[in-house]
Nucleic acid binder design. Structure first.
Lengths: 233, 233
DNA sequence: CGCCAGGTTGATTTCGCTCAAGCAATGTGG
DNA sequence: CCACATTGCTTGAGCGAAATCAACCTGGCG
């Protein structure tokens, strides 16, 4: 096992990506898989013509591009960098070999996929059950989990790495509805928005509303044990 | 490899379940995984109190109960038999061992999970983009794929294994809307409903509407399918 | 016979989408 | 440096699909 991991360390390459850079494009042939070490990646799919829709977010600990590898198809989504990221690349052949020969690694990876599956089902559920307002809040909370800061003054602040359009897409609503919802949240004294700056004004009540304890999950019940720090349970 | 499979065959047990029987309940501790050999299983989740909602269908070839096993949690959904089924059970310890030591099996299993992931994402997409009518038709078609019969007379017939409530849940709509939709489909001469009997009157046009070829249909397309009509957003 | 769960139907309401206009910030070319 | 276009966001008005509320069937069963 040690030997394999050594060879893995030798064969993998880590690269720094800048914001806006494309890791792989939709329809592109799969060259291998990517493990995100830091940063934030958006998976997008174009629906009609030039329009492109943000589908999912992926962050540290997530592996992306595996679907294309394992189904032997071209990428169905594009991966684009939202905030500067360190991404480790594993070549197609090596990845295949690893899957076929290192069960422990495959098992660990399976956890990752399982997390994505849970996420997808959660999204589905949200869409059927929850109102637009609740979904927006969930998206904001999951973003806060990833990128938020608690200022010494006690304010909970978040710098959005997304346009309104993308944010709306994540919540599964139109940009107009998002805008209205945000204004409503302001009138409810729940949060305030200035450009891409979000400030949560009642985080306690918010977490309460979603029956979450502090710093535990949001929309994304990330079960992959490898994601960053928190969540030991 | 041969040896492992032999021991697998020795350790697994196959059991016949009758309609309505519970394979495992929500919140129950995971005892192992189940492979469906024949029949049909419904995965349900209770949303509030006594109310319980049908989430997914699982049929021959599907493995269920793995999520609880791999995340070391109790079952998040209940599995209930819809039509009499043959189900093969693999004990928790054995399953864990197999995952950890037989990469080929894990890889094969990974494909199964990948399929479920694609299914979940497809469901999500459907819900955002398609109308109630289209979703009902998709559910009916996927059921027809599993249980439908083409009578010698040429009629395409299907005996529903579900209540209206469950059918509506699958399509992500309320029972009332389902009822109205069905009546509308009848007035459109697309299908007719008598109790749990469904009769498709224009299967060709139907498959055409969803850009599907005959007998390769269903809600779950290979993920090249971003189906047909997508509203941009 | 009456009860009851499941199903249908009708009336009303609501939520979010579409269409359309207005506005601020950023480019762009003369 | 200024008119002008472009892009991203917000706001308003109207509309429509589906949810909700509520009454009413229907068939099975004690």
């Amino acid at each position: 096992v040690e030997r394999e991991l050594t060879s893995l360390n030798a064969a993998k390459t880590t690269k720094a990506y800048g914001a806006g850079e494309v890791v792989y494009a939709e329809g592109e042939e799969c060259r291998g898989v990517y493990c995100i070490e830091s940063g934030l990646i958006g998976l997008r799919k174009h629906d009609l013509k030039t329009r492109t829709t943000l589908m999912r977010l992926r962050g540290p600990g997530d592996t992306i591009g595996y679907r294309a590898l394992l189904t032997n198809m071209e990428h169905q989504v594009a991966a684009k960098v939202l905030i500067p990221s360190q991404i480790c690349f594993i070549d197609k052949e090596l990845a295949t070999w690893l899957f076929a020969n290192v069960p422990s690694l495959g098992l660990q990876f399976l956890q990752n996929v399982l997390g994505h599956l849970a996420e997808a089902e959660e999204y589905y559920f949200q869409n059927v059950t929850q109102t637009a307002r609740a979904r927006v809040l969930c998206v904001l909370l999951s973003l806060y989990e990833r990128l938020g800061e608690a200022l010494p003054s006690g304010e909970r602040v978040l710098k959005l790495p997304l346009s309104r359009r993308d944010l709306a897409a994540l919540a599964g609503i139109s940009p107009e509805t998002l805008s209205r919802t945000m204004r409503r949240l302001e009138s409810e004294r729940i949060a305030s928005f200035k450009g891409r700056q979000v400030c949560f004004m009642n985080m306690v009540g918010l977490l309460d509303e979603f029956e979450l304890s502090d710093s535990s999950a949001g929309l994304v019940t990330n079960d992959s044990g490898q994601s960053n720090a928190h969540r030991s349970r």
